[in-house]
Write a protein that binds this DNA or RNA. Structure first.
Lengths: 224, 224
DNA sequence: TAGATTGTTAATCGATTAACAATC
DNA sequence: TAGATTGTTAATCGATTAACAATC
């Protein structure tokens, strides 16, 4: 019974200048993708980006991008495009990003090390505050500047530091039992990088990574 | 100018017993997710799965799942559900999976090792036929049972083995130059695990992994 | 000014959902 | 039989797209 509190999505495109109505599922997903592109564009020093360029990178239709954005204000300049810094700030505000969430990472194998030492979460203001592993031989190893801790400490750390988000980079066999423990300790969003399917209570959101499914789907269109 | 041949999607739900019409973008994406779940369910020995269970794991509405499937035949048994093995086979046929694609993996760092040694692609009939790295110190290392090769060999291997799919697990700075080389050699689908944005010709599909964007989006709904 | 790109409308299409008869 | 779940219809809502005036 994997499920999600994201289930019954609400309210559509918001009237211009609208207040903090709950975003629809689709709009929120797209806005976060625009933000991802803007964040990268900032790094390469781009000052402006047009809706067409955003479309090229996100695969979202450019008209829809303009429509999504214009629901919250007139952020663009005709003939020029959108100011990268300003638009990134606007989207962060809309998404209420910057809430400085603490993340716990589980598994210090290859994948755990890759996630822990990449800046991928830090770039968006998330802190990986702890890395855990069940293997005593891995405890104490350095992953992304932190010593790996024993899995037995997880419950305490989650509770003490109000960890809502857990990233699972563990073997499939270990995932369900671990997920049960984490949910009991207070975790509400799980990023599952194991191949295992997870059963969690309805109030918990599971996000499963699926490269093989994505590839199957990409290939279908290539081969057709 | 990242773009995709998946852009202009075609044709909707197909009349029952329809032939090999091109699937719509959404249907193909969903079918590949159903297949992913079925493949996992097979491993745990499940014999049948109901549309509701598939819905729990994929977050796709159960009515839509039944609708997607019934477009291709009557695969389910009322009061029972879908036979896991049989449905997996049907979906593989619909998606024309099993075409035994060769995949090349770039980057033998933590992420490359994680991908190379996981069975995630092999499970779906994809062969990771080579692992490349630009660092001479990594050449020769064992990743998923293969010796890492120097990046200079990539062009030849791609051409000789008809590699259409490349997985990029390289640092952001290296990604664009590498992508250009790969596209020139014949690659048409790129899985980009670097944080860099890629510009590729229109005939190439880029799939960028985006955990931070996904998290932002999941958190928005949690916090609202 | 001329060219580019936004903001917005209107029309179409696909996704979502509830409901329920059919049937295993 | 009784309970469960499919296959299918109909109604609604959101996404997609083309088009274009406004304007930088």
């Amino acid at each position: 019974m994997t499920s999600s509190k994201i289930e019954d999505a609400p309210i559509g495109p918001v009237p211009a200048e609208a207040g903090p109505t709950q975003l629809s599922l689709g709009v929120a997903a797209r806005l976060s993708r625009y933000l991802q592109v803007l964040t990268q564009a900032q790094k390469t020093g781009r000052a402006t980006l047009s809706s067409q360029e955003l479309s090229d990178y996100t695969r979202v239709n450019s008209t829809q991008i303009r429509r999504d954005l214009s629901g919250f204000g007139k952020f663009g300049k005709r003939g020029v495009g959108y100011n990268v810094d300003a638009l990134a700030d606007e989207i962060r505000q809309i998404l209420q990003a910057g809430s400085q969430q603490n993340i716990a990472l589980f598994g210090a194998g290859h994948l755990g090390k890759a996630i822990g030492s990449s800046g991928i979460f830090a770039d968006h203001g998330f802190n990986v505050i702890a890395v855990f592993d069940a293997d005593p031989k891995k405890v104490g190893m350095n992953v992304g500047g932190q010593a790996v801790r024993p899995i037995e400490d997880a419950k305490r750390v989650i509770e003490e530091q109000d960890v809502l988000v857990a990233v699972l980079a563990v073997p499939g066999e270990a995932a369900q039992v671990l997920a049960d423990t984490l949910v009991a300790a207070g975790v509400r969003i799980i990023f599952n990088y194991s191949e295992s399917l997870l059963d969690v209570p309805a109030e918990v959101t599971v996000h499963t990574s699926n490269p093989a499914a994505d590839l199957l789907h990409a290939l279908y269109f290539y081969l057709s």
